[in-house]
Structure formats: structure tokens, C-alpha cells
Design a protein around this nucleic acid. Sequence first.
DNA 1: TTGAAAGCGCTAACAA
DNA 2: TTGTTAGCGCTTTCAA
Lengths: 344, 344
Amino acid sequence: MKKSVTLKDIARETGVHVSTVSRALDPIGQKMLTASVIEKVRACALRMGYRKNNLAFGLKTNRTMTIGVIIPDLTNTLFPLIVRGIESVLEARGYASIIVNTDNNADRKAKLLDVLLERGVDGIIDAAADISDPKMIEVFEQGLPIVTVNRAIKGTSIPSIINDDTAGIQLLLKFLVEKGHRKIAHVAGPQFLTTGRTRLQVFENTLKDLNLTLLSDLVEITSRFDEDEGLRATEVLLEKKLEFTALVCANDRLAIGALEALKKHGLKCPDDISVTGFNNLPYLRMAMPGLTTINIQKFNVGRASAELILRSIDDPDAVIPSCTILPVQLIERGSVKPPAPAKH
Amino acid sequence: MKKSVTLKDIARETGVHVSTVSRALDPIGQKMLTASVIEKVRACALRMGYRKNNLAFGLKTNRTMTIGVIIPDLTNTLFPLIVRGIESVLEARGYASIIVNTDNNADRKAKLLDVLLERGVDGIIDAAADISDPKMIEVFEQGLPIVTVNRAIKGTSIPSIINDDTAGIQLLLKFLVEKGHRKIAHVAGPQFLTTGRTRLQVFENTLKDLNLTLLSDLVEITSRFDEDEGLRATEVLLEKKLEFTALVCANDRLAIGALEALKKHGLKCPDDISVTGFNNLPYLRMAMPGLTTINIQKFNVGRASAELILRSIDDPDAVIPSCTILPVQLIERGSVKPPAPAKH
DNA sequence: TTGAAAGCGCTAACAA
DNA sequence: TTGTTAGCGCTTTCAA
């Protein structure tokens, strides 16, 4: 590896002191220098192919210009979009990000958090927040800027950028009821995630508000937001032999599993049972029948979280909203239609 | 931000010198210390919550334990899998990665390469290699370890880990011919990427070998590996009014676009035209009709590339294979069936 | 086996 | 406006 050019090299070459070189290359430091010196130094730096050593900079200034990004799993198509949103802000501001995947495993997350801290990240964006996360809270309280995105941590003032889960479930239920559905089941998400918890609570409350009977037997809670669990939970519901004409799934991946379960049991969607998802994942448009779902902000929650974290880095005393909720929309596709006339 | 614990703090606390502390915490340095000192220091470090400062370490040793990963676009589901493969190796070895997205834009890539160099990465894994990339070659020749993955750069000894594009296209064509297809069109990928280039060349050569007439009019080259270009190219082919019964698309995303184009023109797949893809992207299983495609190694090319880059970092004189080709498999799904009897 | 001291490349307070 | 100096936290050579 060829040795790289340092400030000292440029100082020797131009005949000025390294601190002058440092200033000439720094927009702020430039203000106290002669134009001719600045020009000379910058030309020399360019000629010699100088590149700032970020390690030395960071060691000195105690800022690495790096943000840690914690996500559950990059292969879940929701997260790359959030990451791109984050990146769109960070890159423009000269920050880089270190992305780690927790696979929704708390032990792994704790270890990866240590990795990020060792690397001296200036802040952390956590897209893998559990409803309770003492270690994260501890780090936050020691003064490291943290923002959660898509999910929140309960019982803390760590700011979160989330989507309107409440409005989403309400939109879905209202839509189903308008179509004539009265017996609606729910494949709920994990209750240790705010998304899963909130969506279930809103499901229950909204049914009550709409004066629909809520059968606790028509709710099955999953342990992961994935297709396998969607399939399993739907089969559990079907095997109870209770009638329902619509199935609200806590997210799209659960809904995909639900569709498989229906097929397996010889039922058709939407003819026999209507199904809805949540998130509006890309690539799912082409799944048949098109999945009625809630579109959430993905790129934008990422962007907002990055803006927030930079704000709290720039100004540690800034007043940061503890929760920012972005709006969602209902996406109507083929998986919902009015229920068939009652069989009995 | 609470000040963090340094070696100096532990030295003061334990009454030994910082260099002794440094050694006590380093597996290699431990060899020259008394067990009791090691124990005392380690206990103290644990108690005080010491965390090594990677910046200082890197500045001193000129190693950041960081690998730059260049990908075209994280939202393309192929790449997260490759990234997870890379990460599985790096994480275990104490390396972190900085991921950047080029959006297949050469200017952006050059800029991002600078970002990675400024951060002093110990090596670069490039999943966004153009067929020609002078800047990348220059950096490689200055001694920075680089490996390309999934694609290669022509005219350089930068090692690459790729999939067997040749075998893939041959498998597809053989399969189509066995099903009775004789008139086969090709939606080719960008010719500035080795994947696009190789697949087209093999397409042409294989048709020749099989004694099938190759009509250059039955090949349309795209400028991006995406659905829009697949749709456009397929429409161009259809509008030529030349008969063909099968369409080989250079990757799955082009094939998705092709399916849309067929639908738009009132044609059915596979009844009127059989369609094949390449890559076997996840999430595409559920697209209708199931897409016949070539499964490529995704996680494994990532893993292999990470192993290779670490090997060339560990031993700069190691003999590294300049090209490693992983095997592919044909995946049969509903998008191919024998051609309908000729209309004329 | 342990300590002393230098220095990685940079910034910033202070001096001139 | 520019130079001097110290030091960020760590590793490592040399000396004891």
C-alpha cells in the first residue's frame, strides 16, 4: 500500500506550517488566511493527491462522522428503502453509516451495539427497536444521540419516527366494514414490537367502536413478522372452524403466509376470505391477487430519522420531538371484496 | 456525552503503565505478562466499562478494520443477500463495513470511492463493477486490496467472484429447445456490465452451436437491468412482427417487464410466449406465472468475496485466484411450456 | 516482565 | 495572518 500524503508532506512542499495547511483546507480556517496562501496550499494538495485522514481527524475532534444504523434484516425489502432514505441525508452531510443486522435477536443486538460504540459512532439510528430495550436506553442516557425509526421503545424519551399504525388499522377496518364484512379476524404481529402491539390494540378498540363483536378467538398472535408465522397463525384460525369473512394481517409478510394457508385449505382469496396487509412492500404488487394494504412512508421515515439525529448531534440542546408520526394511505387491490352471502 | 474510559484511566487505577495495560488487553501482548497483572488489568477494564478506541488503534496501526462495500442499489433484492454473505464473514473477524450505493452512476461511484478511501478502508468489495473502470484499477494498483463480486472488470487482475453466466444461459437454451422452441428472442442486459455482455455472447454462441438461426433482430439490448427496460425492449421485439415462441431475458427484473409487455399486447405467458429470467430473486416466486430462471449464488458470492479480501489483507503476497466462478442451477416454473403449433 | 517514550495525522488554543 | 505546541488514545520499539 503506497503511503498516503499527509499535511506534513504538503507543509514541506509549500514551505508553510502544517497548521496553516490544515487551515487552508478547512472552510472555516480559511477565513484567517491570505488568498494566495490558500491557493498555493490547495493547488499543492490537489497535485499531490492529498486525502484527509478521517481517523486522525476523529481522534482529535472526537467525532467520527459516522452513524450506526441498526436494522433487523437487510433482506426484508422494507429496510433497504429506509436505509436509502437515511443515506440520502447522511451522504450529503459528509457522514457515513455502518449498518448492522440484528436478525431480531436481542443478544446479537447488544453485541452489535458494542461494535458501534467501539467505532465511536456519533449517533445511532435504530430500526430494530424492541418495545423494551434497557441497554439502548442506558447508552442514550449517557449522552449518545439515538433515534428509533419505524418502531419505538416504550418508557423512554428516545425520539422515534414512526408511521401512523393507528390510522392504518382504522382505514382497513372501515374499508372492510363498508364492503360488508362483519366477522373479521386478525393475525397479530409480535407483541414485543410497538408495531405489532399498537396494531392489535387498535384492531380491538376499533371493532368495539364500530359495535362489532370482538372474538378473542379470532385473534392469533405471531412471534415473527414473516411468511411462516402468517401461514401458521392463519391455519390456527381456520382450524377453529369459527366463521370469518375477512382477515386483517399485521403486515404484508404475514398476509403472504395467510394467502398460502388459504390455498392450502382450499379457500380462495378474495372469494371466500378477504385479506389485508400492512406496509405496502415493493415487489408485492405482482403477487396474486394484488394485496390490499396500507402504504407506509419508508424512504421518508429514514430521511426524517437521519435529519433528526444530525440535529441532535449539531445541537445537543435542541428540542427534539419525542415522537414523529408520518401519514399512511389505504391501497386497494384485489384481495378484498364483499363477503359471500352467509352459509347459514 | 460521558467521557469514555481510556487505557490511561485503567493504568492510573491499577498502578501499572499504560503500555502494560495495552498488552494485558491484547491476546498477543499477554504472552509477555504475569498472569496476575493480566487478571488485575482485565478485571479493572471490565469494571470501568472500558471500550477500545478504534480510531486511535487505526491511526497507530494504519488499519481501520473496515471494508468498503460498493453496490449499485440496496433496494434491488439481489444485493442485500450478497451483503449478508459479506457481513457473515467480516463480522466474525471483527471487521465492519461501510456500504455505499452507486445507482449505477459512474460519477457517483468515483465520488463514493473517494469517501471510502478517506475513511481509510482496509479493502473494497465492489459489487457494482463496470466492464471498464480505470479509477478502480488505479486504486488497486496502488496496493489497496479489491475484490469484485457478481460482476468483473475486464483487463485487470482485480480478483472477481462471479456466477456461471455461461452455464446459466446454456441451461436455459437447452431447456427451451428440449421443450420444442426454435425461435428464441433475447432481451439483453447492458453491455457495459460483464453479466449483460457475457449472457448475450453465450446466447449467440449457443444458438449457433445448436444450429438455430440467430436473428439479430430478435435481440434487443437494454440500458438498465430493470422492469422498465424489460418492458420497453420486449415491446420493441413484439412490434417487429417477427415470430418467436420464447424470450430469454438477461435477468429477472427484465423478465418481469417482459411479462408486463406481453400482457399489454394481449399475449399470454406461457401460452403464447415462454419467458425466462436469470438470478432467481427472492419474492419473485409468487409472481404469476412462476418465472423459470437460473438460480445464482447470492449469499455465497458475498461470503467468498469477503474471505478473499481478508486473505489478501492478511497476506499481501498470497496468490489469489483472479476469477472464481460459482455454479448455477435451472429453476423450472410455470413461465415455460412447449410452443403452440405454428400459425402458418 | 514491565516502564519510558515516541509518534500515527490531525486540530486548536495560544503566541507572535 | 501565520507559527508553535500540545495532545487526542493507542501501539511498539527500546531500555531497564
